[in-house]
Design a binder for these strands. Structure first.
Length: 296
DNA sequence: TTCCAGCTATGTTATCGTAA
DNA sequence: TTACGATAACATAGCTGGAA
């Protein structure tokens, strides 16, 4: 039976436009001008006899029909691309770059990545460690996991898990000449800092203490080294109970103080608010929401 | 089978309107 | 002022069909 298909070039332009929700960036992706995208999309809308995009001022969004069409077209084009690469003998796996905080990456994600690889062997996953905010336009990053309150402009944040930072240390520091009983006792102990993190400053101020320069301790890049230093009794670090539950359960680490009040930070899955996630990003989102229980 | 004129699809630049 | 999409006019490559 002869297929009644919409113009395929127009579908390609629509898919790029819907993916970016921006004709200019869609045009960059396809190496044409925005006008060409506009022409193609208009042609497709005429073929369907209804609009696929809502044209707002400086902002595009999909109509119901467009939202219905997009995942189908995106998957079809992905499958064509994969098949074409296989036929040409050039397996082209979709690449997904995820930026995570070092603690989240080493303490939580690393132990679960194997499951993702088994479920999605077709995805070439790259994990970068950073605590800095991601510029999705500039950095080559599809998704990020960040610690904080989740209010980052230009992004969509989905809460993954609570991660209130508390002072954690070896139980050995609860005894000795300067036992850790109250926050003020911290002045007799070394504060271990994670690179590029300011949590100690915020925590000390919230606890009504000075963040005196003399209180600053060593800055350690690797979160695992930081934890080992604390377990060895070399100082106190700020860590989330969620990330350290194994050490807390085993008694290697203890939380000497009750949690202070104030905002409750968490880990968030972050993506740009001006683009729909691709198939690989969608798969990772489903995976991480399921693993953290955030999707339930 | 090849050549060629006309048609069509697809793209460009220039320009305009709109709103942040 | 800037960013973005729409429109008009035009250019070009490829397709189609008829003639040799």
């Amino acid at each position: 039976m002869r297929r009644r298909l919409p113009p395929l070039n127009a579908l390609r332009a629509f898919e790029a436009g819907a993916g970016h929700l921006n004709f200019t960036r869609a045009a960059e992706e396809l190496s044409v001008t925005p006008t060409a995208i506009s022409h193609q999309v208009r042609q497709l809308e005429e073929w369907f006899g209804l609009p696929l995009f809502k044209r707002g001022s400086r902002r595009l969004s999909l109509t119901e029909a467009g939202a219905q069409l997009y995942p189908v077209v995106a998957e079809a084009l992905d499958r064509i691309a994969e098949s074409a690469c296989r036929i040409r003998g050039q397996p082209d796996r979709p690449t997904l770059t995820v930026s995570v905080t070092p603690t989240f990456g080493s303490r939580w994600l690393a132990a679960r990545l194997g499951k993702f690889w088994i479920e999605h062997p077709e995805i070439d996953l790259r994990v970068h460690h950073s605590v800095h905010l991601v510029d999705f336009k500039r950095d080559d990053v599809d998704l990020a996991v960040r610690w904080g309150l989740g209010a980052w402009p230009g992004t969509v944040s989905e809460r993954l898990m609570d991660a209130v930072a508390m002072p954690l240390c070896s139980p050995a520091l609860l005894t000795g000449p300067h036992p850790l009983r109250e926050p003020v006792d911290l002045e007799h102990h070394v504060l271990l800092h994670e690179k590029d993190r300011q949590e100690w400053t915020e925590w000390l101020i919230a606890a009504g203490l000075d963040d005196a320069p003399g209180r600053r301790g060593p800055v350690i890049d690797d979160p695992n080294s930081l934890v080992r230093a604390a377990i060895a009794g070399h100082g106190v670090f700020l860590g989330s109970v969620t990330m350290m539950n194994a050490e807390l359960d085993s008694g290697a680490l203890v939380a000497p103080f009750a949690r202070a009040g104030g905002p409750e930070p968490a880990y968030f899955l972050v993506r740009p608010d001006d683009a729909s996630p691709g198939r690989a990003a969608h798969a990772f989102r489903e995976f991480i929401l399921a693993e953290t229980g955030a999707g339930e």
